[in-house]
Design a protein around this nucleic acid. Structure first.
Lengths: 219, 219
DNA sequence: CAACATACATACATGCATGTATATGATAGG
DNA sequence: CCTATCATATACATGCATGTATGTATGTTG
Protein backbone atom coordinates (compact mmCIF):
# COMPACT_ATOMS: atom_id res chain seq x y z
CA UNK A 1 0.00 0.00 0.00
CA UNK A 2 2.25 2.77 -1.27
CA UNK A 3 1.41 6.39 -0.70
CA UNK A 4 0.48 8.10 -3.97
CA UNK A 5 3.14 10.48 -5.19
CA UNK A 6 1.37 13.80 -5.15
CA UNK A 7 4.06 15.28 -7.35
CA UNK A 8 2.15 16.58 -10.34
CA UNK A 9 -0.46 18.66 -8.65
CA UNK A 10 0.01 21.17 -5.92
CA UNK A 11 3.72 21.42 -6.37
CA UNK A 12 4.37 24.36 -4.12
CA UNK A 13 6.72 27.03 -5.30
CA UNK A 14 10.15 26.32 -3.93
CA UNK A 15 10.94 29.74 -2.54
CA UNK A 16 13.83 29.99 -0.12
CA UNK A 17 11.70 30.87 2.89
CA UNK A 18 9.31 28.12 3.78
CA UNK A 19 5.76 29.20 4.36
CA UNK A 20 4.75 29.47 7.98
CA UNK A 21 2.55 26.74 9.34
CA UNK A 22 -0.51 28.95 9.60
CA UNK A 23 -0.23 29.82 5.96
CA UNK A 24 0.19 26.17 5.11
CA UNK A 25 -2.91 25.35 7.07
CA UNK A 26 -4.83 28.07 5.29
CA UNK A 27 -3.75 26.79 1.89
CA UNK A 28 -4.59 23.24 2.85
CA UNK A 29 -8.04 24.34 3.92
CA UNK A 30 -8.60 26.11 0.60
CA UNK A 31 -7.47 23.02 -1.25
CA UNK A 32 -9.90 20.88 0.69
CA UNK A 33 -12.76 23.25 0.04
CA UNK A 34 -11.93 23.34 -3.65
CA UNK A 35 -11.75 19.56 -3.83
CA UNK A 36 -15.09 19.22 -2.09
CA UNK A 37 -16.62 21.76 -4.45
CA UNK A 38 -15.09 19.94 -7.40
CA UNK A 39 -16.53 16.66 -6.18
CA UNK A 40 -20.02 18.11 -6.12
CA UNK A 41 -19.66 19.97 -9.38
CA UNK A 42 -18.21 17.07 -11.34
CA UNK A 43 -20.93 14.79 -10.03
CA UNK A 44 -23.66 17.25 -10.93
CA UNK A 45 -22.45 18.46 -14.33
CA UNK A 46 -19.98 15.86 -15.51
CA UNK A 47 -16.35 16.50 -16.31
CA UNK A 48 -16.78 18.36 -19.56
CA UNK A 49 -19.64 20.64 -18.54
CA UNK A 50 -18.16 21.45 -15.14
CA UNK A 51 -16.82 24.99 -15.07
CA UNK A 52 -13.83 26.00 -13.00
CA UNK A 53 -15.63 29.18 -12.06
CA UNK A 54 -18.49 27.15 -10.57
CA UNK A 55 -16.08 25.03 -8.59
CA UNK A 56 -14.28 28.08 -7.21
CA UNK A 57 -17.53 29.89 -6.45
CA UNK A 58 -19.00 26.89 -4.68
CA UNK A 59 -15.93 26.79 -2.47
CA UNK A 60 -16.34 30.49 -1.77
CA UNK A 61 -13.53 31.76 -4.02
CA UNK A 62 -12.87 32.96 -7.55
CA UNK A 63 -10.76 31.36 -10.22
CA UNK A 64 -7.70 33.06 -8.76
CA UNK A 65 -7.71 30.72 -5.80
CA UNK A 66 -8.23 27.80 -8.11
CA UNK A 67 -5.19 28.45 -10.26
CA UNK A 68 -3.10 29.06 -7.16
CA UNK A 69 -3.81 25.47 -6.10
CA UNK A 70 -4.30 23.51 -9.29
CA UNK A 71 -2.99 23.61 -12.81
CA UNK A 72 -6.09 22.83 -14.76
CA UNK A 73 -9.41 21.02 -14.71
CA UNK A 74 -7.67 17.75 -15.41
CA UNK A 75 -5.29 18.39 -12.52
CA UNK A 76 -8.02 18.80 -9.93
CA UNK A 77 -9.90 15.89 -11.46
CA UNK A 78 -6.96 13.59 -10.82
CA UNK A 79 -6.31 15.07 -7.39
CA UNK A 80 -9.93 14.30 -6.61
CA UNK A 81 -9.50 10.75 -7.83
CA UNK A 82 -6.52 10.16 -5.55
CA UNK A 83 -8.30 11.58 -2.55
CA UNK A 84 -11.46 9.71 -3.37
CA UNK A 85 -9.78 6.31 -3.70
CA UNK A 86 -7.88 6.87 -0.46
CA UNK A 87 -11.06 7.83 1.34
CA UNK A 88 -13.01 4.86 0.12
CA UNK A 89 -10.27 2.46 1.12
CA UNK A 90 -9.96 3.98 4.56
CA UNK A 91 -13.73 3.80 5.03
CA UNK A 92 -13.65 0.06 4.57
CA UNK A 93 -10.59 -0.22 6.80
CA UNK A 94 -12.40 1.60 9.58
CA UNK A 95 -15.44 -0.56 9.04
CA UNK A 96 -13.50 -3.79 9.34
CA UNK A 97 -11.55 -2.47 12.29
CA UNK A 98 -14.77 -2.48 14.24
CA UNK A 99 -15.30 -6.23 13.99
CA UNK A 100 -13.19 -9.29 14.64
CA UNK A 101 -15.73 -11.95 13.85
CA UNK A 102 -15.74 -12.89 10.13
CA UNK A 103 -19.51 -13.20 10.04
CA UNK A 104 -19.92 -9.77 11.57
CA UNK A 105 -17.49 -8.48 8.99
CA UNK A 106 -19.44 -9.97 6.13
CA UNK A 107 -22.60 -8.49 7.59
CA UNK A 108 -20.97 -5.08 7.89
CA UNK A 109 -19.74 -5.28 4.31
CA UNK A 110 -23.18 -6.14 3.07
CA UNK A 111 -24.66 -3.23 4.94
CA UNK A 112 -21.98 -0.87 3.70
CA UNK A 113 -22.68 -2.13 0.22
CA UNK A 114 -26.36 -1.32 0.55
CA UNK A 115 -25.48 2.19 1.66
CA UNK A 116 -23.12 2.76 -1.22
CA UNK A 117 -25.98 1.98 -3.55
CA UNK A 118 -27.83 5.03 -2.27
CA UNK A 119 -25.08 7.57 -2.65
CA UNK A 120 -25.89 9.50 -5.76
CA UNK A 121 -22.67 11.49 -5.80
CA UNK A 122 -20.58 8.39 -5.38
CA UNK A 123 -22.23 6.69 -8.32
CA UNK A 124 -22.02 9.68 -10.64
CA UNK A 125 -18.42 10.46 -9.74
CA UNK A 126 -17.37 6.88 -10.16
CA UNK A 127 -19.01 6.87 -13.56
CA UNK A 128 -17.27 10.07 -14.48
CA UNK A 129 -13.87 8.60 -13.66
CA UNK A 130 -14.55 5.53 -15.74
CA UNK A 131 -15.88 7.46 -18.70
CA UNK A 132 -12.84 9.70 -18.59
CA UNK A 133 -10.60 6.68 -18.71
CA UNK A 134 -12.42 5.21 -21.68
CA UNK A 135 -12.34 8.48 -23.58
CA UNK A 136 -8.83 9.67 -22.85
CA UNK A 137 -6.28 7.06 -23.89
CA UNK A 138 -3.36 9.08 -22.53
CA UNK A 139 -4.93 9.13 -19.06
CA UNK A 140 -6.36 5.65 -19.18
CA UNK A 141 -3.44 3.91 -17.50
CA UNK A 142 -3.39 6.30 -14.59
CA UNK A 143 -7.12 6.07 -13.96
CA UNK A 144 -7.03 2.31 -14.31
CA UNK A 145 -4.23 2.00 -11.80
CA UNK A 146 -6.25 3.83 -9.15
CA UNK A 147 -9.40 1.94 -9.96
CA UNK A 148 -7.50 -1.30 -9.75
CA UNK A 149 -6.03 -0.32 -6.39
CA UNK A 150 -9.53 0.18 -5.11
CA UNK A 151 -10.85 -3.03 -6.60
CA UNK A 152 -8.02 -5.20 -5.45
CA UNK A 153 -8.37 -3.78 -1.97
CA UNK A 154 -12.07 -4.70 -2.01
CA UNK A 155 -11.18 -8.04 -3.52
CA UNK A 156 -8.64 -8.79 -0.80
CA UNK A 157 -11.16 -8.06 1.89
CA UNK A 158 -13.80 -10.20 0.27
CA UNK A 159 -11.34 -13.04 -0.16
CA UNK A 160 -10.10 -12.93 3.41
CA UNK A 161 -13.60 -12.85 4.81
CA UNK A 162 -14.71 -15.70 2.60
CA UNK A 163 -11.69 -17.79 3.47
CA UNK A 164 -12.22 -17.36 7.17
CA UNK A 165 -15.81 -18.48 6.60
CA UNK A 166 -14.64 -21.47 4.61
CA UNK A 167 -16.55 -20.35 1.54
CA UNK A 168 -15.36 -19.65 -1.98
CA UNK A 169 -16.21 -17.13 -4.68
CA UNK A 170 -17.55 -18.19 -8.08
CA UNK A 171 -15.23 -15.71 -9.81
CA UNK A 172 -11.98 -14.00 -8.91
CA UNK A 173 -12.22 -11.79 -5.86
CA UNK A 174 -11.24 -8.69 -7.83
CA UNK A 175 -13.91 -9.39 -10.41
CA UNK A 176 -16.43 -9.89 -7.63
CA UNK A 177 -15.59 -6.58 -6.00
CA UNK A 178 -15.67 -4.85 -9.37
CA UNK A 179 -18.99 -6.34 -10.36
CA UNK A 180 -20.60 -5.54 -7.02
CA UNK A 181 -19.56 -1.89 -7.18
CA UNK A 182 -20.53 -1.45 -10.79
CA UNK A 183 -23.86 -3.14 -10.23
CA UNK A 184 -24.90 -0.92 -7.37
CA UNK A 185 -23.97 2.22 -9.28
CA UNK A 186 -25.82 1.04 -12.36
CA UNK A 187 -28.99 0.36 -10.39
CA UNK A 188 -28.83 3.77 -8.77
CA UNK A 189 -28.45 5.47 -12.12
CA UNK A 190 -31.52 3.69 -13.46
CA UNK A 191 -33.40 4.79 -10.39
CA UNK A 192 -32.33 8.39 -10.94
CA UNK A 193 -33.55 8.29 -14.52
CA UNK A 194 -36.88 6.68 -13.72
CA UNK A 195 -37.65 5.82 -10.15
CA UNK A 196 -40.86 4.08 -11.19
CA UNK A 197 -39.08 1.57 -13.38
CA UNK A 198 -36.83 0.47 -10.54
CA UNK A 199 -38.03 1.25 -7.04
CA UNK A 200 -35.90 1.46 -3.93
CA UNK A 201 -37.36 -1.79 -2.72
CA UNK A 202 -36.60 -3.55 -5.97
CA UNK A 203 -33.04 -2.27 -5.91
CA UNK A 204 -32.56 -3.55 -2.39
CA UNK A 205 -33.96 -6.87 -3.45
CA UNK A 206 -31.70 -7.12 -6.48
CA UNK A 207 -28.67 -5.99 -4.52
CA UNK A 208 -29.23 -8.72 -1.98
CA UNK A 209 -29.88 -11.26 -4.71
CA UNK A 210 -26.72 -10.34 -6.53
CA UNK A 211 -24.55 -10.05 -3.45
CA UNK A 212 -25.57 -13.51 -2.35
CA UNK A 213 -25.21 -14.95 -5.83
CA UNK A 214 -21.68 -13.65 -6.11
CA UNK A 215 -20.55 -14.12 -2.54
CA UNK A 216 -22.21 -17.41 -1.74
CA UNK A 217 -21.72 -18.46 -5.30
CA UNK A 218 -22.35 -22.19 -5.66
CA UNK A 219 -22.42 -23.09 -9.31
CA UNK B 1 -47.48 1.80 -29.48
CA UNK B 2 -47.83 5.28 -30.86
CA UNK B 3 -45.52 6.58 -33.52
CA UNK B 4 -43.27 9.32 -32.14
CA UNK B 5 -44.24 12.77 -33.34
CA UNK B 6 -41.17 13.86 -35.21
CA UNK B 7 -42.40 17.46 -35.10
CA UNK B 8 -39.56 19.27 -33.41
CA UNK B 9 -36.68 18.21 -35.55
CA UNK B 10 -36.43 18.16 -39.28
CA UNK B 11 -39.41 20.39 -39.82
CA UNK B 12 -39.14 20.90 -43.53
CA UNK B 13 -39.60 24.38 -44.94
CA UNK B 14 -43.18 24.75 -46.04
CA UNK B 15 -42.53 26.12 -49.49
CA UNK B 16 -45.38 26.02 -51.95
CA UNK B 17 -43.81 23.43 -54.23
CA UNK B 18 -43.13 20.15 -52.53
CA UNK B 19 -39.71 18.66 -52.99
CA UNK B 20 -39.48 15.97 -55.57
CA UNK B 21 -39.11 12.42 -54.31
CA UNK B 22 -35.50 12.12 -55.42
CA UNK B 23 -34.59 15.18 -53.43
CA UNK B 24 -36.47 13.80 -50.48
CA UNK B 25 -34.56 10.59 -50.75
CA UNK B 26 -31.28 12.45 -50.91
CA UNK B 27 -32.15 14.46 -47.83
CA UNK B 28 -33.24 11.35 -45.99
CA UNK B 29 -29.94 9.72 -46.86
CA UNK B 30 -27.89 12.61 -45.48
CA UNK B 31 -30.03 12.60 -42.36
CA UNK B 32 -29.31 8.92 -41.90
CA UNK B 33 -25.61 9.45 -42.45
CA UNK B 34 -25.55 12.31 -39.98
CA UNK B 35 -27.43 10.26 -37.41
CA UNK B 36 -25.03 7.38 -37.79
CA UNK B 37 -22.08 9.72 -37.46
CA UNK B 38 -23.67 11.30 -34.40
CA UNK B 39 -24.18 7.88 -32.86
CA UNK B 40 -20.50 7.10 -33.21
CA UNK B 41 -19.34 10.51 -32.13
CA UNK B 42 -21.56 10.75 -29.06
CA UNK B 43 -20.51 7.27 -28.00
CA UNK B 44 -16.85 8.07 -28.45
CA UNK B 45 -16.67 11.57 -27.01
CA UNK B 46 -19.79 11.95 -24.91
CA UNK B 47 -22.49 14.53 -25.44
CA UNK B 48 -20.63 17.59 -24.21
CA UNK B 49 -17.31 16.94 -25.90
CA UNK B 50 -18.86 15.89 -29.21
CA UNK B 51 -18.40 18.56 -31.85
CA UNK B 52 -20.91 19.18 -34.58
CA UNK B 53 -18.06 19.61 -37.01
CA UNK B 54 -16.81 16.11 -36.22
CA UNK B 55 -20.25 14.66 -36.71
CA UNK B 56 -20.66 16.39 -40.05
CA UNK B 57 -17.16 15.45 -41.19
CA UNK B 58 -17.61 11.82 -40.22
CA UNK B 59 -20.74 11.74 -42.34
CA UNK B 60 -18.81 13.28 -45.21
CA UNK B 61 -20.25 16.79 -44.96
CA UNK B 62 -19.59 20.15 -43.32
CA UNK B 63 -21.64 21.95 -40.70
CA UNK B 64 -23.78 23.40 -43.48
CA UNK B 65 -25.41 20.05 -44.07
CA UNK B 66 -25.86 19.60 -40.37
CA UNK B 67 -27.81 22.81 -39.83
CA UNK B 68 -29.90 22.08 -42.91
CA UNK B 69 -31.13 18.93 -41.18
CA UNK B 70 -31.01 19.65 -37.45
CA UNK B 71 -31.44 22.64 -35.20
CA UNK B 72 -28.73 22.03 -32.67
CA UNK B 73 -26.72 19.40 -30.91
CA UNK B 74 -29.59 18.70 -28.58
CA UNK B 75 -31.90 18.29 -31.54
CA UNK B 76 -29.85 15.56 -33.18
CA UNK B 77 -29.28 13.96 -29.79
CA UNK B 78 -33.01 13.55 -29.31
CA UNK B 79 -33.53 12.48 -32.90
CA UNK B 80 -30.92 9.83 -32.28
CA UNK B 81 -32.69 8.71 -29.13
CA UNK B 82 -35.99 8.26 -30.97
CA UNK B 83 -34.36 6.30 -33.76
CA UNK B 84 -32.35 4.27 -31.33
CA UNK B 85 -35.29 3.24 -29.19
CA UNK B 86 -37.31 2.33 -32.27
CA UNK B 87 -34.45 0.24 -33.61
CA UNK B 88 -33.91 -1.63 -30.42
CA UNK B 89 -37.58 -2.43 -30.10
CA UNK B 90 -37.80 -3.65 -33.67
CA UNK B 91 -34.72 -5.81 -33.18
CA UNK B 92 -36.42 -7.71 -30.41
CA UNK B 93 -39.63 -7.92 -32.42
CA UNK B 94 -37.75 -9.49 -35.31
CA UNK B 95 -36.01 -11.85 -32.93
CA UNK B 96 -39.23 -13.07 -31.40
CA UNK B 97 -40.87 -13.31 -34.80
CA UNK B 98 -38.45 -16.10 -35.61
CA UNK B 99 -39.68 -18.41 -32.87
CA UNK B 100 -43.07 -19.67 -31.75
CA UNK B 101 -41.93 -21.92 -28.93
CA UNK B 102 -41.66 -20.07 -25.60
CA UNK B 103 -38.51 -21.95 -24.63
CA UNK B 104 -36.86 -21.07 -27.90
CA UNK B 105 -37.89 -17.50 -27.33
CA UNK B 106 -36.32 -17.42 -23.89
CA UNK B 107 -33.19 -18.95 -25.32
CA UNK B 108 -33.08 -16.37 -28.09
CA UNK B 109 -33.56 -13.58 -25.58
CA UNK B 110 -30.74 -14.87 -23.45
CA UNK B 111 -28.47 -15.03 -26.44
CA UNK B 112 -29.46 -11.59 -27.60
CA UNK B 113 -28.78 -10.37 -24.10
CA UNK B 114 -25.27 -11.81 -24.17
CA UNK B 115 -24.62 -10.04 -27.45
CA UNK B 116 -25.87 -6.72 -26.18
CA UNK B 117 -23.34 -6.97 -23.42
CA UNK B 118 -20.55 -6.85 -25.97
CA UNK B 119 -21.68 -3.81 -27.89
CA UNK B 120 -19.49 -0.99 -26.72
CA UNK B 121 -21.34 1.71 -28.63
CA UNK B 122 -24.66 0.56 -27.28
CA UNK B 123 -23.47 0.73 -23.71
CA UNK B 124 -21.82 4.12 -24.01
CA UNK B 125 -24.74 5.66 -25.86
CA UNK B 126 -27.22 4.29 -23.41
CA UNK B 127 -25.16 5.76 -20.59
CA UNK B 128 -25.01 9.07 -22.37
CA UNK B 129 -28.78 9.24 -22.66
CA UNK B 130 -29.23 8.47 -19.00
CA UNK B 131 -26.62 10.94 -17.84
CA UNK B 132 -28.22 13.60 -19.97
CA UNK B 133 -31.55 12.93 -18.34
CA UNK B 134 -30.09 13.15 -14.85
CA UNK B 135 -28.28 16.38 -15.63
CA UNK B 136 -30.90 18.25 -17.62
CA UNK B 137 -34.12 18.56 -15.64
CA UNK B 138 -35.98 20.22 -18.51
CA UNK B 139 -35.25 17.27 -20.77
CA UNK B 140 -35.59 14.58 -18.13
CA UNK B 141 -39.26 13.82 -18.77
CA UNK B 142 -38.73 13.35 -22.47
CA UNK B 143 -35.75 11.07 -22.07
CA UNK B 144 -37.50 9.10 -19.36
CA UNK B 145 -40.57 8.58 -21.51
CA UNK B 146 -38.49 6.98 -24.27
CA UNK B 147 -36.46 4.94 -21.83
CA UNK B 148 -39.64 3.74 -20.22
CA UNK B 149 -41.10 2.81 -23.59
CA UNK B 150 -38.08 0.63 -24.20
CA UNK B 151 -38.13 -0.91 -20.75
CA UNK B 152 -41.82 -1.64 -20.70
CA UNK B 153 -41.52 -3.24 -24.11
CA UNK B 154 -38.74 -5.47 -22.79
CA UNK B 155 -40.77 -6.08 -19.66
CA UNK B 156 -43.82 -7.13 -21.64
CA UNK B 157 -41.82 -9.63 -23.61
CA UNK B 158 -40.22 -11.07 -20.51
CA UNK B 159 -43.59 -11.34 -18.81
CA UNK B 160 -45.28 -13.05 -21.74
CA UNK B 161 -42.47 -15.53 -22.16
CA UNK B 162 -42.43 -16.31 -18.45
CA UNK B 163 -46.17 -16.72 -18.29
CA UNK B 164 -46.19 -19.16 -21.19
CA UNK B 165 -43.52 -21.10 -19.35
CA UNK B 166 -45.53 -21.05 -16.16
CA UNK B 167 -42.79 -19.25 -14.26
CA UNK B 168 -42.80 -15.97 -12.40
CA UNK B 169 -40.38 -13.10 -11.91
CA UNK B 170 -39.05 -12.11 -8.48
CA UNK B 171 -39.61 -8.43 -9.28
CA UNK B 172 -41.81 -6.49 -11.68
CA UNK B 173 -41.14 -7.28 -15.30
CA UNK B 174 -40.19 -3.70 -16.07
CA UNK B 175 -37.70 -3.65 -13.23
CA UNK B 176 -36.27 -6.94 -14.44
CA UNK B 177 -35.80 -5.63 -17.97
CA UNK B 178 -34.28 -2.44 -16.63
CA UNK B 179 -31.89 -4.21 -14.30
CA UNK B 180 -30.77 -6.66 -16.97
CA UNK B 181 -29.97 -3.91 -19.44
CA UNK B 182 -28.22 -1.72 -16.90
CA UNK B 183 -26.25 -4.64 -15.56
CA UNK B 184 -24.85 -5.68 -18.91
CA UNK B 185 -23.84 -2.12 -19.75
CA UNK B 186 -22.19 -1.66 -16.37
CA UNK B 187 -20.12 -4.83 -16.76
CA UNK B 188 -19.01 -3.79 -20.21
CA UNK B 189 -17.92 -0.39 -18.95
CA UNK B 190 -15.82 -1.99 -16.23
CA UNK B 191 -14.28 -4.23 -18.82
CA UNK B 192 -13.43 -1.23 -20.98
CA UNK B 193 -11.74 0.49 -18.07
CA UNK B 194 -9.77 -2.52 -16.98
CA UNK B 195 -10.16 -5.75 -18.88
CA UNK B 196 -8.00 -7.59 -16.38
CA UNK B 197 -10.28 -6.83 -13.45
CA UNK B 198 -13.27 -8.30 -15.24
CA UNK B 199 -12.55 -10.67 -18.08
CA UNK B 200 -14.89 -11.61 -20.90
CA UNK B 201 -15.35 -15.02 -19.39
CA UNK B 202 -16.22 -13.58 -16.00
CA UNK B 203 -18.70 -11.21 -17.55
CA UNK B 204 -20.38 -14.05 -19.38
CA UNK B 205 -20.50 -16.00 -16.17
CA UNK B 206 -22.01 -13.11 -14.23
CA UNK B 207 -24.47 -12.33 -16.97
CA UNK B 208 -25.74 -15.88 -16.93
CA UNK B 209 -25.83 -15.90 -13.16
CA UNK B 210 -27.79 -12.69 -13.02
CA UNK B 211 -30.13 -13.53 -15.87
CA UNK B 212 -31.05 -16.78 -14.22
CA UNK B 213 -31.36 -15.19 -10.78
CA UNK B 214 -33.76 -12.60 -12.11
CA UNK B 215 -35.64 -14.68 -14.64
CA UNK B 216 -35.87 -17.94 -12.76
CA UNK B 217 -36.09 -16.05 -9.52
CA UNK B 218 -37.17 -18.32 -6.73
CA UNK B 219 -36.86 -16.49 -3.43
C1' DC C 1 -33.06 26.18 -71.83
C1' DA C 2 -34.54 29.42 -68.62
C1' DA C 3 -35.96 30.35 -64.05
C1' DC C 4 -36.20 28.61 -59.77
C1' DA C 5 -35.64 25.64 -55.71
C1' DT C 6 -32.84 22.56 -53.10
C1' DA C 7 -28.59 20.77 -50.75
C1' DC C 8 -24.68 21.92 -48.99
C1' DA C 9 -20.32 24.82 -48.26
C1' DT C 10 -17.93 28.87 -46.82
C1' DA C 11 -17.24 32.92 -44.19
C1' DC C 12 -18.33 35.62 -40.42
C1' DA C 13 -20.21 36.96 -35.68
C1' DT C 14 -20.83 35.82 -31.04
C1' DG C 15 -20.31 33.87 -26.61
C1' DC C 16 -18.05 31.54 -23.26
C1' DA C 17 -14.57 28.97 -20.70
C1' DT C 18 -9.73 28.69 -20.06
C1' DG C 19 -5.49 30.44 -18.85
C1' DT C 20 -2.23 34.32 -17.72
C1' DA C 21 -0.58 38.53 -16.01
C1' DT C 22 -1.17 41.95 -12.81
C1' DA C 23 -3.14 44.15 -8.68
C1' DT C 24 -4.54 44.12 -3.76
C1' DG C 25 -5.03 43.10 0.76
C1' DA C 26 -3.46 40.07 4.59
C1' DT C 27 0.28 38.08 7.31
C1' DA C 28 4.78 37.21 9.15
C1' DG C 29 9.59 38.58 10.19
C1' DG C 30 13.09 42.04 11.28
C1' DC D 1 5.98 49.70 11.96
C1' DC D 2 7.99 48.57 7.62
C1' DT D 3 8.87 45.41 4.17
C1' DA D 4 8.59 41.12 1.79
C1' DT D 5 5.94 37.34 0.70
C1' DC D 6 1.85 34.95 0.58
C1' DA D 7 -3.24 34.04 -0.80
C1' DT D 8 -6.63 35.54 -3.55
C1' DA D 9 -9.06 38.81 -6.80
C1' DT D 10 -9.47 41.30 -11.01
C1' DA D 11 -8.69 42.29 -15.71
C1' DC D 12 -7.26 40.85 -20.00
C1' DA D 13 -5.96 37.67 -24.01
C1' DT D 14 -6.86 33.63 -26.49
C1' DG D 15 -9.07 29.79 -28.51
C1' DC D 16 -12.75 27.25 -29.82
C1' DA D 17 -17.45 25.66 -30.70
C1' DT D 18 -21.88 27.30 -31.92
C1' DG D 19 -24.97 29.49 -34.77
C1' DT D 20 -26.20 32.52 -38.79
C1' DA D 21 -26.00 34.60 -43.17
C1' DT D 22 -24.67 34.23 -47.60
C1' DG D 23 -22.74 31.96 -51.63
C1' DT D 24 -22.62 28.17 -55.15
C1' DA D 25 -23.51 24.27 -57.65
C1' DT D 26 -26.73 20.80 -58.73
C1' DG D 27 -31.17 19.33 -59.80
C1' DT D 28 -36.09 20.24 -61.29
C1' DT D 29 -40.04 22.12 -63.70
C1' DG D 30 -42.52 24.71 -67.30
Amino acid sequence: MNIPSIASSARRKNTATLATSRQQARTAATRRKLLLAAEQTFARDGYEAARLEDIAARAGYTRGAFYANFDSKEDIFFALLEQWVAQRISEVDVLLGRHDNPQQRLRALREHYAQIAQDRRLALLSLEFKLFAVRHPEAHARLRARQRGLRSCGGDILRRVMRSLGRSLPISSVAAATALGAFSHAMLLEHLVDSSSLSDAEIRHLLGLFFDAVVVGER
